[in-house]
């Protein structure tokens, strides 16, 4: 009898969860991701011009700009707001102009400014982490996001 109750409880929880998520996404924070590629063209006079384009295809070495737009669509402030972007395996991190961002080089277990992180070598020694070692980037906001507030986060990457 006890076993049956717990089973029924689990069932009701599972069916309830999608409903909760739906209700929240309707009036909570939304986040939108955009990827642009930086293409440089040189005109006849030798002047180079850099354009940001929305790509469908890229080649190794292409410079990508990732733009994340967020908005608090809710009626209440969103606290403990953290945006996390795991880097696609084929993209090497190439910096961010946002000093608030922290990065991880170990799959998201530890975080910090790149200069403070290190990579453990196979022989037990360690070396300073490099941009291409970055696995995740995240922004942890100290202040709640007021209702209706929107913002934009950016970082750069290179197609490996």
């Amino acid at each position: 009898m006890k076993r049956m109750i717990s089973f029924a409880f689990a069932l009701s929880l599972a069916s309830a969860l999608p409903g909760v998520a739906q209700a929240q996404s309707a009036n909570a924070v939304a986040i939108d991701s955009n990827v642009m590629v930086e293409r440089t063209t040189t005109d006849a006079a030798g002047r180079s011009q850099t354009m940001l384009e929305e790509p469908r295809v890229v080649v190794p070495g292409d410079k990508l700009v990732f733009v994340l737009n967020y908005r608090n669509n809710g009626v209440r402030a969103a606290s403990d707001f953290v945006v996390t972007n795991p880097l696609p395996q084929a993209v090497a991190f190439d910096g961010t102009s946002d000093a608030d961002a922290s990065v991880s080089v170990d799959g998201g277990r530890s975080w910090g400014q790149l200069a403070t992180l290190s990579i453990r070598n196979a022989d037990g020694t360690s070396r300073p982490a490099r941009a291409e070692d970055v696995t995740h980037i995240r922004w942890a906001f100290q202040q709640p996001i007021p209702a209706g507030r929107a913002g934009r986060l950016m970082f750069r990457g290179v197609v490996r």
Partner: peptide, 9 residues
Amino acid sequence: NTASATFDN
């Protein structure tokens, strides 16, 4: 590429 946001409202 997919980003995620966690928050508490």
